[in-house]
Amino acid sequence: MAFCSSFSPLDQEPGTEQLAAQHGPLLLEFGAPWCAHCQAAQALLASAMQQYPDLPHLKIEDGKGRRLGRNFRVKLWPTLVLLQDGQEMARLVRPDSLQAVEQLLASLATAPRTS
């Protein structure tokens, strides 16, 4: 699984416990399909993720009544959260350049491997 172009349905959204038990890297993207900032970031994210074809990417729709975003202290969209073995390694809020997204993903190279 690489770049994901659509948001996960609410009934398929992972829970905090499930994410904490995740092994390996995972990129979470919090946002909303109607959000102009989220739409603008898609091309940047798709381009940067070409270098990481095996990186799982989940788009989580955030908003009123959506707890996962609150658990990750999301305040602005899009917010990208990079997890390694269920632990947050890095985050990027409202990416505005390819370089910013590439820098976030480059932190994978410095992540400790546990598996």
Rank of each mutant, 00 (worst) to 15 (best):
L108M: 14
P53K: 05
S97I: 12
S115F: 10
Q84W: 04
P112W: 05
Q99N: 04
I60Q: 03
A100S: 14
F72N: 04
L44Q: 02
L58D: 01
S115E: 12
L27W: 09
S6C: 01
F30D: 05
Q12N: 09
G86L: 11
A43F: 03
I60P: 01
P14F: 07
L10N: 04
A43C: 06
S8M: 07
F7R: 01
A43K: 04
T79W: 08
L10H: 05
R66W: 10
H57G: 01
V93K: 03
A41N: 06
R94S: 13
K75Y: 07
V74M: 04
L83E: 00
A109L: 11
E13V: 10
G24I: 09
D11Y: 05
G31R: 11
Q18R: 00
A43P: 03
V81E: 00
G15I: 07
P25K: 04
M1A: 13
Q50I: 03
S97N: 10
A46V: 04
S107W: 01
L82R: 05
V101W: 06
F3Q: 03
N71W: 01
E13R: 06
Q51E: 12
K64A: 15
P112Y: 02
E88F: 05
P95T: 08
P56M: 02
M49I: 01
P95R: 10
L28E: 12
L105I: 10
E13L: 10
E17T: 06
L92N: 02
M49G: 02
T79L: 13
R113D: 09
A40Q: 14
G31Y: 09
A36H: 13
V74Q: 02
F7P: 03
N71A: 13
H23K: 15
D62N: 15
Q87E: 15
Q22I: 00
L27C: 07
F3M: 05
P95S: 07
P9E: 00
R94L: 07
L58R: 11
Q51P: 00
S5A: 10
I60L: 15
P112V: 11
I60K: 00
S115K: 05
R113C: 08
L80Y: 00
Q103G: 07
A48R: 02
A32S: 15
V74R: 00
P112L: 13
Q50G: 06
Q18I: 04
R94E: 15
R94G: 06
R73D: 06
R70L: 14
L92A: 02
V101S: 08
L76T: 08
H57S: 03
A20S: 11
S97D: 12
P56L: 02
K64F: 12
M1K: 07
P78E: 10
R73A: 12
A100Q: 14
Q51V: 03
R91I: 13
A109I: 07
A32G: 13
S47T: 14
R94Q: 15
C4A: 13
L19Q: 00
C4M: 05
A111M: 11
R67W: 03
G86M: 09
P78W: 12
P53Q: 02
C35V: 06
L92Y: 03
A43H: 00
E102L: 12
F3T: 01
P56R: 01
L108Y: 03
T114Y: 14
L105C: 12
D85F: 10
L108R: 14
L80M: 07
T16Y: 08
A2P: 12
K64V: 13
Q39E: 10
W77R: 08
T114R: 13
S107A: 09
